[in-house]
Design a protein around this nucleic acid. Structure first.
Length: 645
DNA sequence: TCACGGAATATTTTT
DNA sequence: TATTCCGTGA
């Protein structure tokens, strides 16, 4: 009788557990979604269902980890139902924090014009502070900027003190603990001075806003009747707090996650959040999605067996109706190069059966584990794309251009000035620092730039810079117009600095096209930090990165949520995977196991594990020759053993 | 103080 | 592979 109440046939389109999750809309709900169990489908249908029930779309808040997955889900919901779903408030925790802080940050003394620092900015600021304050000179050796950012970032993300983090994870740094603590204070101050917020600050300050200003928190909470959080196993404590605070009194909150797939603890993600959820929210309904629609039974048999070794709390056993298929194989290759050879030959054979290259993936623990393979693939003329490694928006030419634009709206931005100035011939760190101080002492914007009298050595370049900003000051330009002016200025530097400048010039053209979509420069800068334009392929910004039929190489972390017909996991060599860094600590080892689980559950039809029978680790001077301990004791009925000598 | 070249080094990195 | 560090000479 009520059949025509809904336009979508929910009951038919979904399996019973999915249906239950979609239709449970009153009170807290925890969905444990196993790998390949239709998690995205469930979320999409739930959005549609709520909208069909007459919930005002903007009062639904969907928080995800990547911008992409939020967009994807809302797009699917729109296709499923109608364009009302486009009005749903969706985004990442960070983008939500950004917009909230631009509006209400003044309560915390944060101006609405703050600049968001990305990872590279953060590292550079550390490097600068270390140098300025001579911190590294106080010690025999001081960690480099990347490590510093890791340690201090981890402290924030795990809500622990720096000392605790050093004690737990970086015991070899205990002698520089004082320096790191001091550095973190300097960092905080420097950010405040230049109105910078790093990624972590966005979350920290949002939480502070919600805790310290209950009225504002209430107003925000009232705005959202339904809150959904995806990938809950990879939230950190701050995000869990934010989730709780944004829900208000009568929480219609749904979180979805899989504790077995929590792989970001090194960044502070705490899969305990999933465990704690029912304790935080009274009367939580728990639903498990256990039917797998991705992998053949033999693969599931193995992955189920793998994860049995983990001490997780929400046990689940995935099953599938996809019978048949072949048993996963563990291959012992003679050497690293033989391993690559195995991949090339096997992969070509599978491709010759009609499987597209883009349906075949090679996964590995760490970015550099694929170096040898990359050489062999190039030699064999096999096209590939590599995902993972953190350098999407970080290419120098993009950052150079953005720096020139950043100082227009935030002239106190020392990182950008230093970038800009160092481009100029005969200006090094010292001169750049002096010039920056000159600019800063003149209060109004970068007026100081024009009164500086340059040293003869760098006079020509410096005058050119002055002309650039004189032109920019002359009248008001649109974002894209500014971009064009900067690009023209930057071109000679790019040609001088990079051999591959034609490629990079193309990148900048793309960047310019993106600028055309913006009318506000702060908004443009924010989006560049928060949602960098798609992926790079071969170092080039490309829109068509996914169109070509190429073999996929990826770190396991970057493979999360994806699937392929055939998956090779390489370097499953004890010491590399699990990595030596983790074998002394149980929780770290558990995470490595989950990582192996994530890798294995990406495969639909074929799953191969490969390891070089012997390899040498130069850093530790250790020979490694046994397969990953996670696979070592798996019986033949689950995993077949082969040799490739 | 700057620029350059060669050597050393690298876990993972949604924002 | 590609980035960063460090020593050297100008």
């Amino acid at each position: 009788m009520l059949n025509n109440r809904y336009r979508i046939d929910y009951e038919n389109d979904l399996n019973p557990s999915q249906y239950e999750a979609v239709t449970f809309t009153d009170g807290p709900l925890l969905v444990i979604a196993g790998a390949g169990s239709g998690k995205t489908r469930t979320l999409t249908y739930r959005v549609a269902r709520l909208v069909e029930e007459g919930v005002y779309p903007a009062s639904i808040l969907l928080l995800t980890f990547t911008r992409k997955s939020a967009q994807e889900m809302l797009k699917r919901a729109t296709t499923l139902l109608d364009e009302r779903c486009e009005q749903v408030s969706g985004g990442t925790f960070h983008s939500f924090a950004n917009s909230t802080l631009r509006k209400h940050g003044h309560l915390l003394g944060i101006g609405s014009g703050f600049t968001i620092m990305d990872r590279a900015d953060t590292e550079n600021l550390f490097a600068m502070l270390i140098k300025d304050h001579g911190i590294s000179k106080e010690y025999d050796s001081f960690p480099k900027k990347g490590t510093v950012a890791n340690v201090l970032g981890k402290a924030v993300n795990k809500s622990k003190t720096i000392e605790d983090i050093i004690y737990d994870d970086y015991p070899h740094l205990s002698n520089v603990a004082q320096g790191l603590v001091r550095l973190s204070e300097l960092y905080k101050q420097a950010k405040a001075d230049q109105s910078f917020l790093d990624y972590d600050d966005l979350l920290v300050f949002l939480k502070k806003l919600l805790t310290d200003f209950p009225d504002t928190a209430k107003k925000l909470a009232n705005q959202f009747d339904y809150v959904m959080v995806d990938e809950y196993q990879d939230t950190n404590l701050i995000q869990a707090e934010i989730t709780r605070l944004i829900c208000g009194e009568s929480p219609n909150i749904m979180v979805v996650g899989d504790d077995s797939q929590s792989i970001y603890s090194f960044r502070g993600a705490n899969f305990q959040n999933i465990m704690d959820f029912p304790g935080t929210f009274e009367n939580t309904k728990i639903i498990r999605l256990e039917e797998n629609y991705r992998s053949r039974q033999p693969i599931l048999n193995l992955t189920n067996r793998l994860i049995e070794g983990a001490r997780e709390k929400y046990t689940k056993k995935l099953f599938t109706n996809l019978e048949g298929g072949t048993k996963p194989t563990l291959i012992s290759a003679g050497s690293e190069n033989r391993q690559s050879n195995f991949i090339v030959e096997t992969m070509e054979q599978i491709a010759s059966q009609g499987v597209p290259l883009s349906e075949i993936a090679v996964l590995f623990r760490a970015g550099f584990h694929s170096f040898d393979l990359e050489i062999e693939l190039t030699r064999a003329g096999i096209p590939f794309v590599k995902y993972g490694g953190f350098k999407f928006m970080e290419s120098a030419h993009i950052k150079d251009v953005l720096a020139h634009m950043r100082v227009i709206s935030s002239p106190s931005d020392r990182l950008s000035w230093s970038r800009i100035l160092l481009l100029i011939d005969k200006i090094g760190p010292k001169a750049a620092s002096n010039i920056y101080n000159e600019i800063k002492t003149k209060k109004s914007g970068y007026a100081g730039l024009f009164t500086i009298r340059p040293k003869p050595a760098y006079k020509p370049g410096f005058e050119r810079l002055q002309e650039l900003y004189a032109e920019i000051d002359a009248k008001s330009f649109s974002v894209a117009e500014l971009g064009e002016i900067v690009l023209k200025y930057y071109a000679p530097y790019m040609e001088d600095k990079f051999d591959d400048f034609p490629k990079r010039a193309k990148d900048l053209e793309h960047l310019l096209a993106i600028m055309h979509r913006y009318s506000d420069i702060t908004e443009f800068m924010t989006d560049m930090a928060l949602e960098p334009p798609s992926a790079l392929s071969g170092g080039v910004l490309s829109e068509a990165a996914f169109d070509d039929d190429k073999l996929v190489l990826s770190t396991i972390h970057s493979a999360k949520g994806l699937e392929w017909h055939t998956v090779f996991v390489i370097n499953v060599l004890d010491g590399r995977f699990p990595s030596v860094h983790s074998i002394n600590k149980n929780e770290d080892l558990e995470e490595e196991l989950r990582l192996m689980y994530v890798a294995a559950t990406r495969a639909r039809e074929n799953l191969f594990f490969v390891y070089p029978g012997q390899a040498y680790d130069r850093a530790s001077g250790v020979f490694m020759n046994s397969p990953s301990r996670f696979l070592d004791d798996i019986p033949d009925e689950f995993l077949e053993m082969q040799y490739w000598d």
